[in-house]
Design a protein around this nucleic acid. Structure first.
Lengths: 157, 157
DNA sequence: CAATCACTGGTCAATATGTGCAGTGGATCG
DNA sequence: CGATCCACTGCACATATTGACCAGTGATTG
């Protein structure tokens, strides 16, 4: 669960240059190939590294508009709402939260006009009382993990 | 920019089983290896596939608490706030948005108590007027792309 | 001290990769 | 219609990488 400095360097290296492979990584890190292989196996069975899936850009797919919707849910309708939202492809993630709303979801759409369609589909469901949407204009910090990995590695070794 | 059915199947296949490699992918898809290679090259130079970085789980790193903070910014302080938040490792992403707040950021922390420290660090900056935080309890739909890819592939071919 | 553990540095066979090639079929255009 | 372009196939080759082992070493621990 805790990662050491070598783990951190390995993850950062793979995050920066994903295509290098185990052998090249071992060369860069100055350790034996078996070590890198063992570390990677451990990190993956730990769950620290979930996998190496392709990082797809919704904008390049034709969905350049991102928005976050805060949803208010009727009591006892949570499970139904989850199932409903899970069936909407434009819902990229869904969280239940504390605070003013009950759920927060990330949406994408083909255009601002298309966003209306997506929102209609999202909120067009009985269990949802109210929705408030914030459209993303800029993304100064894209989803990242490297700084956190570096900090986690510092904290340990 | 638009992807066809084969592109879609390729992305979905790689998303489900990232470690299979080009050759195995070509076998699964029933096409020649060169075709898969060419498609992958195109998808990557298109920007549809940004890369194949490791998918790191913050929870497994010791940061099991996720929260979303809506920030209200003093006029003209946007750039400074961005730089400030970019320097906080626990800020995993940052967006500027329309709506009630001016920015929305995703935070992680080691515990609910630690979240207080993170929030203090986030809002302990002159340009930030007010912050409202929603702590994530459940994550019924983890960040996903497959359904969107399937839809985008349907729409085209 | 003995045992355990992670790492090294090496080998081996099997496999994948990058690259290039000629051939084929469909679509496009003058 | 004929020429051209394009993506794909199926194949080949040399090279690199992988997964799997192994004995040896040094640090740590009971």
């Amino acid at each position: 669960m805790a990662i050491d400095h070598l783990d951190g360097r390995l993850i950062v290296l793979l995050a920066r240059e994903p295509r290098i492979g185990v052998l090249e990584a071992s060369r860069r890190l100055g350790v034996a190939r078996g070590t890198v292989q063992a570390r990677l196996d451990r990190l993956q069975s730990n769950g620290v590294i979930r996998g190496f899936g392709p990082d797809v850009d919704p904008a390049a797919l034709g969905y350049p508009v991102t928005a976050f919707a805060t949803l208010e849910i009727k009591q006892g309708q949570g499970a139904d709402v989850r199932a409903h939202l899970g069936g909407v492809p434009e819902v990229l993630e869904l969280h239940t939260t504390t605070g003013h709303g009950d759920m927060l979801c990330r949406l994408v759409a083909r255009s601002n006009a298309d966003l209306q369609r997506v929102i209609d589909r999202v909120v067009g469901f009985d269990g949802i009382v109210r929705a408030s949407t914030a459209i993303v204009m800029e993304n100064p910090v894209p989803l990242r993990i490297i700084p956190l990995v570096e900090q986690a590695a510092e904290d340990t070794g």
